[in-house]
Design a protein around this nucleic acid. Structure first.
Lengths: 233, 233
DNA sequence: ATAGCCGGGTGGTGA
DNA sequence: TCACCACCCGGCTAT
């Protein structure tokens, strides 16, 4: 399992969220942050509030200010509201109207969604899930819809060819029929490829480039590089 | 007071959300929609699900498909989950991990947040609040989200390599890292392949055979109808 | 989505 | 070299 890192505002020390995170194997760094509470990366951060705070910040308008600053500083930020939501819109004067209004406002205007958790453990779980997508390695697994005979050679070949960019079921079939094997396809010249019906010169070249292009590891930072500058805003 | 309009999928007629909306002074138009349930504008739409549906769609992966389509069709879309949330992650007993995981996934990957309401009235109130910001006079929108590039070259390459038989995320990564390009992998000798950690002689040979083997059309007695049905999720 | 199980290949160890 | 075995990985199933 990969090591995840997070920067947490010092004032969050008294909650136990960071303890849960530690338990989940997340490296926690404390810093004095000016905008968010939890920084997951250079452009992803989370503000945590309990329900009482949330309500108060709706009333005095602080919420919208914070959402604005979040949206300015990080391209993907969100607010986590912790506690019993019921409490929220029962304590709002205008009732639930202003509650949904606030949610809608923050989302529609600033692009900041709000998540609701019941306690610190859930908050930690959510943050952990968010981190995994922000820092996690790509684990896109491929899935087959229906498998009449998944294990037949032909099916496997089709499956592979279909995974090429811009190649669907029909094109895959024609490719295999005309060129025979996967190796033949991969080694084919643009000219050979564009012989195939439905595959023009343009895409043929794209494909060839695709096969030839070198893999470059995603510079999803290697950890220690930007830890210092994370969250300084 | 300005008049707001909304387009609602026909299949939503049996819920009473649209009635509430009418009561709030919203013009409701029914249409057959292919992606969302409620369309607030050309680039804002909402998918409504009850908790049971929500859970089911997590399990069978439908949720992620829908979120993807939402994000493609509308620049600012969201999912409204109606009902008792508790019910949700109690039926996903994986410690609610998969619940938060799904929420995080849909938000981080597709930019689609999920809102939770208790009943149809609340759903209507939320939608109403959303409309006000979408169609309201002041459309000051700060939110500019850079769409997460799901199709980086590296991702595509990984995707293809993972589709090879017996190759999962880990092996795919190592293969690309050591051999560089897809063409290199396909043309590699068994010896070269088995240099890779976790890929021994046996599988190396299998792979090479796989790349070389000629495609043989499967003769399905019921006619070759099903060839198109092999799909990638 | 996540957790967990299973079957099998891999690669190291020691004979 | 080979047999053994612990571990890892990929594939599949279930809550």
């Amino acid at each position: 399992m990969q090591i995840f890192r997070i920067v947490v505002d010092e004032r969050e020390k008294n909650s136990s969220v960071h303890l849960y995170l530690r338990n989940m194997g997340v490296r926690v760094l404390f810093r004095r942050l000016s905008v968010a509470d939890y920084v997951l990366s250079g452009d992803c951060a989370v503000e945590r509030k309990n329900v009482k705070d949330f309500v108060k910040s709706i009333i005095d308008g602080r919420l919208f200010d914070q959402a604005y600053r979040l949206s300015q500083a990080y391209s993907r930020s969100s607010i986590i509201v912790e506690g019993d939501v019921k409490l929220a819109y029962s304590s709002l004067k205008a009732g639930s109207k202003s509650f949904w209004g606030a949610l809608a406002y923050v989302w529609m205007v600033f692009g900041v969604p709000s998540f609701f958790t019941l306690n610190e453990r859930e908050t930690a779980e959510l943050i952990h899930a968010l981190i995994k997508h922000e820092q996690g390695e790509v684990k896109k697994r491929i899935y087959i819809r229906s498998k009449p005979k998944l294990e037949s050679l032909a099916d496997r070949q089709l499956f592979v060819v279909q995974s090429f960019p811009g190649v669907g079921p029909k094109l895959a079939l024609r490719l295999l029929k005309t060129l025979g094997s996967i190796k033949n396809i991969v080694n084919a010249s643009p000219a050979e490829l564009s012989m195939i019906e439905g595959l023009g010169r343009q895409r043929a070249i794209q494909l060839v480039n695709f096969f030839n292009s070198m893999y470059r590891e995603v510079s999803r930072d290697s950890g220690q590089v930007k830890l210092d500058d994370i969250g300084v805003r």
